[in-house]
Amino acid sequence: MIALKNLQVNLGGKVILEDLNFQFEKTGLYVILGNNGAGKTTLLKTICGLQNPNHGIVEAEGKSVHQLSLSERSSIIQYVDDPSPIPAFIKLTEYLTLGYQEDGMQIETVMQQLQLVDLKDREVASFSRGQQQKAMLAKLFYGDQPVWLMDEPSNYLDYPSLLHFWAEIQEKAKQKLIIATLHNPEEAIKLDAQILIIEQKRLNKLENPSLNGIIQELN
């Protein structure tokens, strides 16, 4: 579904990612680990088309992501990052449908999946960080695109929400390609996921990962 070919990305004249070659399957959960500043966010932004690569291409369904039209791209790939300020007066249900067709059934389902039903009529601007992160993830669920990229999606979730969220994601990963970055190996190792590590500008897949193995790799 998504293939990285000879990918190189520079930021401010500095090489961040180099010579990346990787083929993601059509479905499944991939977790990308890496230290702060390793280039996790840059990689996700490059895959979803927000960042242009300096060399190489990102292919989605055989076409370069950076050549797709905005509407084509938005129907294949979605990306969520940190909660950012949301303007006032946007209620949760309005936030979920913003940019999409309205579908009442789907709204209800998604709010249940992310345990947001109680917040239904409240303004997203008044949410706590964790609630806002859930709202952003709910928007991802609502859009239902085949490829999801998530940049540290569980940062602000409380522990019960975190467990619930990953259970939902494992279920979704049966029909989608989901790529998530994380910085905590302990969180990653508990998931039924392929684990990748970014270090020294390159992306490596870990075979039979163990917690100690990952920690050694990251050090």
Partner: peptide, 17 residues
């Protein structure tokens, strides 16, 4: 303009130029 309220990057991810 409504979608643009979410920021230019988020709007472009939602297919808005």
């Amino acid at each position: 303009f409504d979608v643009l309220l979410l920021g230019r990057q988020k709007a472009s991810l939602l297919g808005v130029n």
